[in-house]
Design a protein around this nucleic acid. Sequence first.
DNA 1: TTGAAAGCGCTAACAG
DNA 2: CTGTTAGCGCTTTCAA
Lengths: 343, 343
Amino acid sequence: MKNKKRAVTIQNVAKAAGVSVSTVSRVLNGKTDVASDTQTRILSIINKLGYTSNLAARSMRTRKKNLIGLVVPDFGLYSFEIMKGINRAIAESTFDLLAYTTGDAQKNGATLHEQHYVSLLSNSVTDGVIVVASGSAEFVANSPIVAVDPHIFNPNYPCVQGMNYHGSLEVMEYLIGLGHRRIGFISGRQDAGTAERRLKGYQDALTNAGIELDEELIIPGDFTQRTAYKCARQLLTLSNPPTAIFAANDQSAIGAIQAAEELGLLVPSDLSVVGFDNISEAKHLGITTVDQFLAEMGYVAVQMLIKLINGESLEFEIHKMPTKLVIRNSCQKLIQDAQLLSG
Amino acid sequence: MKNKKRAVTIQNVAKAAGVSVSTVSRVLNGKTDVASDTQTRILSIINKLGYTSNLAARSMRTRKKNLIGLVVPDFGLYSFEIMKGINRAIAESTFDLLAYTTGDAQKNGATLHEQHYVSLLSNSVTDGVIVVASGSAEFVANSPIVAVDPHIFNPNYPCVQGMNYHGSLEVMEYLIGLGHRRIGFISGRQDAGTAERRLKGYQDALTNAGIELDEELIIPGDFTQRTAYKCARQLLTLSNPPTAIFAANDQSAIGAIQAAEELGLLVPSDLSVVGFDNISEAKHLGITTVDQFLAEMGYVAVQMLIKLINGESLEFEIHKMPTKLVIRNSCQKLIQDAQLLSG
DNA sequence: TTGAAAGCGCTAACAG
DNA sequence: CTGTTAGCGCTTTCAA
C-alpha cells in the first residue's frame, strides 16, 4: 500500500532541472519567454517524474480553471440523458467536466447538499456550474450558474427549460384525436414547476376540446415509477376507468404500464399510455412519449455557460427547448413478429 | 452578470465575528476547544454570509478530503451501470463523489487523458480514485487507486474483475445445450484482457464439447454496436451461417440483433443471440445476457477504496465478481401478446 | 479559550 | 530570458 508517498511538486521539478519554480511554472502555462533548451529540459523532467500540477493549488491562484462543474440530483435515467448532451458539448470544448452528485434526490437535506456543492464547486475549482433539476431557489456563488430544467424557477439564473405546457397540449390533442374522452393524468412532484405546467396543459387541452374535467382522473404522483404504479392502479380500478393515461414523465409512464399489464390490459390497444422525457428505457415499452430533448438541453446549457464564463452575453436568459411527440407503434410490430413466429 | 463578486472567505467570516481566522477554522472543523457562545455566533454568521469553505485551499492543507474521485471513459450505458453501484456506496458512506470524464473513450489520446486525470484527482482534491475500464498500465498517484474491469490488468492496483472466462463458458454450454453447433463469436477490443478471456471461454467450451473450431466464425469487433452490426452481417451471410451468435458485450449483441432483423431473421427463434454485461438497454431486446453485475462491481470498488484510504488491508487484491446467465423468453411473451391482440 | 505565524503548491508581478 | 517575492484561503503548531 504505497499511498504514503507524497506527490511530486513543481519544486521537485525545478530542483531536478536546476531552475527556479517560476520557470517551470512558465513552461507549464505555455508562456513563450523561455529558452527552448530550458523548455525541453524541463519538459523531459516533468515527463520522467510523472509530474501533474496540483489542481487545488493551481485553481487557488488562477482565475481560469478550464473546468465546468455539474451538480446532478443522482445518477439516474433522467440525469443520464442530460449528461449525454453535456458530455458532447464538453468534448467539443476546451473545458473539462467535474460532476458531483449526492446520489439521492429524495434524500433528507438534498436541497442543502445541492446548494452546498454548487457553492463548493463554484467558489473553488470550476469556472462555472450547471445545476440539473434544481430544487433550490438561491445559490451563493462567485461564478456563473446555468440551470437545466429547474423545479423551481429563479429569474436570477439563466436556464434551459423544456416547453412543458406546449408538449402537454400536444399529447392531449393527440389522445383526443384518437377518440379518447376519459384521460387519466398522473402528475409530478407537487413542488416542481415543470409538473405544474404539464398539468396545466392537460387541463387546458380538455377545456379547449370541450371535455369536462373530472378531478377523479387526476392523481398526484411524484415522478417515480413506484408511485405511478399505484396511481395507475387507482385510475384503472375506477368504476368508470380512463381509456388513456398521460403520465407526467416517462418513469411514471413505465409504472403505469406495469399496472396496466398486471390488470390484463394491453398497451396500447386497450389503453394508451403517454409520458414525458423520452428516456431510453421508455423506447422499448411501446410508450408514446414526448421527447423534450434532454440531451440537447444539456448540450445547450454547456454552451450558455461557456459564453457566460467568457464574459459574453446570452441571447436568451431562458432557453426554451421544443418538444416532439414520438408515437411508437410497437404493437404493429408485435403482431407482425408473432405471425412470423407462429408460421 | 454578477459573477465578478469574489467568494466569501474565512477571513470575512472572522472579521464579521470579531475573531481570528483560526477560531473560525476551529469551529469549521468541529474542534471542541471553542467557547460555545463564540461557536454559535460564528455559525450564525457563516449561515448569514452563505460561506462555503474553498475546496482547493482546504484540500491543500488537509490530508483527508472526504472525496472520492472517479474517472470513467465516457458517460455511456456501460459506465452508467457501474456508476449506479458507485453512487449507492457513496450514498452510504461519509465520502462524496467527484466524477471526471473525457467524454470519449475512442478519442485520440484518451489514455493519456485518463492517466492525467487520475493523477490530477489523486494528487489534489480526492482521497483516492476509481478508474473504470482503464486502458492504462500505470498511474502516478499518491493516493490509492482501485480499477474496475480494467482492459489492461496491472498487479500494482487492486481491482474488481468480472469472471469473464467463466461467464463465457456458461454461455457456450447454454448454447450448445440448446443444440447449436455453429456458433458465431463477435470479439471485443483487441487490446482488452476482458475480451481475450471471453474469447478463450468460447474456444475452450467448443473444445470441451468436441466441436471443431471454425475460424470463419470468429469476427473481430470492438465492443461497439456499429462494428458489431457489420460483424454480424458478415457472419449471417456466410454460405454456412451460424445458428447462434455470442457477442463479447451487450452493445455488440444489440448490433447483431439489428443485422439479424434486417436480414429477416427472428431472434431468438431463427437465431440465438447472447451478450455480456447486461446493460439495461439489452433487457428489452430479448437477448440472453450474462449479467456480470456491473453495479455491484462499482459498489465493491468503492468499499475497497475506502478501506485503502483508511489504511486497512484488503481481503482480496483482486475481487472476482461472479456472472449469471439471464435467459429471456421474450418470444413467448410476443406470441402471447399478439394472440391477445389479434384475438 | 484564543491569536499570530508558518506554509501547503502554485501563479503573477517585478526586478534584473 | 530567469529568479525573487508576495500572496491565493486554509489548517495547524506554538504561544499567550
